[in-house]
Simulated assay, not measured.
Amino acid sequence: MALKKQERQALILDILAREVVDSQEGLMHHLQNAGIDVTQATVSRDIKEMRIVRRADATGRPRYQVMSDASVVDTAHVQEVFAETAVSITRVEFMTIVKTTQGNGNRLAAIIDDANIPEVVATLAGHNTIYVTSPSVTAAEKLAADFDNWMQ
């Protein structure tokens, strides 16, 4: 059965509230068990749109969780999470590549996005790598220097 987007996303929230889901495949499996026809691409879009990230829960087990609706994250929080999760930084022209500990790329990128840092145009995150795009080489240089200070 196909659901409207809002209904499907409501079901995703319900599944994540009841179950420990740690992968897109796992989420697809839960949706399919509920009789919902869904593709991996649709699940991926829903995850991004709904601000769902994979991070450790209170017990330390990685799982998908919805990021809070706080509109702006303060810089101190970004620095704290950056210090906990960032492993290395490489700047290439106007891009800064951040390697993170396993499973923390999406989480850190979401926090960077929410912080509204002027030197950040956008982030693209994977499991343990984040590409941060800046508006200029100068902005990327400042950002990389800030990130480097936050790692220490």
Rank of each mutant, 00 (worst) to 15 (best):
L16H: 00
I117C: 04
I112E: 01
Q102F: 06
I112P: 00
V120H: 02
L143W: 05
S134V: 03
G60S: 12
D69Q: 10
I47M: 14
L31Q: 03
V72Q: 15
V137P: 10
I52P: 00
L11G: 00
T85S: 08
K99E: 07
N116K: 15
A125R: 02
R45Y: 11
S71C: 12
F82C: 01
D74K: 07
V66I: 13
L143R: 01
R91D: 02
F82V: 03
T96W: 00
Q6M: 13
S23F: 13
T138V: 04
Q79T: 02
T90F: 06
Q65G: 12
T85C: 06
V73M: 15
G103P: 09
S88I: 03
E84M: 09
T123M: 03
V20R: 14
G105H: 00
R55I: 08
E19A: 11
S134H: 05
Q102M: 04
V43E: 03
F147G: 00
E141W: 02
R55V: 14
K5T: 10
Q65M: 11
T101K: 09
P62H: 07
D37K: 15
T129H: 10
N149E: 10
A58M: 07
R51H: 14
L16K: 01
Q65E: 13
M50F: 03
M67K: 10
V137Y: 08
M28N: 12
A109M: 02
M151I: 13
V92A: 15
V43T: 04
M28T: 14
A41T: 14
A70R: 11
S44L: 11
H29D: 03
P118Y: 06
A41W: 13
S68I: 15
L108Y: 04
V98C: 03
Q9F: 09
Q32G: 05
L11Q: 08
A109R: 07
L16W: 00
Y131L: 14
A34G: 04
A10C: 13
N106L: 09
Q152V: 13
S134E: 03
R54T: 05
V81K: 00
T85N: 02
G103H: 10
R107S: 09
V38P: 06
R107P: 11
Y64E: 07
D46K: 04
A70S: 14
I89Y: 08
D69Y: 13
A145Y: 05
M95C: 06
